[in-house]
Simulated scan of single mutants.
Amino acid sequence: MKKLLVVFLLIPATAICQPGITEMQEARSDLTQSFFSARDLSLVIAAILGIIGAVRIYHNLQMGRERFTSEVAAWFFSALFMVLLGAFCQAVFGI
């Protein structure tokens, strides 16, 4: 009986503790003030990663290294991750 009473007393406390719409709007306004656009920032970082990766792969090719496919994949997917991260932040926070 005591356990049931404790459960019923704790249910409203957990419902109040959940973050709501006002907290998401506050986070959105904070992020909007900090960045000009998360998508633009991620595209700039992805472009920088792409240029650095292309130069490193070109250098490896000129040095005669035959096995650099893993490095190509690593640079490609890091740039792709940055592009998707910007789209994700824009979708979640609307910035």
Rank of each mutant, 00 (worst) to 15 (best):
I48W: 02
T32V: 06
G50T: 15
G64M: 04
A74H: 02
E71Y: 04
L41M: 10
L49F: 07
W75L: 01
S70D: 15
A54V: 04
Y58D: 00
R56T: 07
A54M: 14
R56Q: 13
A47M: 05
I48S: 08
I57W: 04
R56K: 15
M63R: 09
S34T: 08
I48N: 02
E71L: 12
G50C: 03
T32W: 01
A46Y: 08
T69Q: 14
E66G: 14
Y58I: 10
I48H: 02
L43I: 02
R56L: 11
L41A: 12
L41P: 00
R56S: 13
A46H: 07
A46T: 07
A74D: 05
L41V: 06
T32M: 09
I45F: 05
T32E: 14
V72P: 09
A54Y: 08
I48V: 11
D40V: 12
G53K: 03
R67W: 08
A54F: 14
I52C: 05
E66R: 11
G50L: 06
E66W: 06
I45C: 08
W75E: 01
E71R: 03
G50N: 11
N60T: 00
F36W: 03
Q62S: 06
D40L: 12
A38V: 14
A47N: 13
W75I: 01
A54Q: 05
T69D: 15
F68C: 08
F35M: 06
R56E: 15
L49S: 10
E66M: 12
A47W: 01
A74R: 05
R67I: 09
F35Y: 13
L43K: 11
R65G: 09
R67A: 15
R39I: 07
E66Q: 11
Q62K: 11
G53Q: 08
A47I: 00
H59L: 08
A73N: 06
D40A: 13
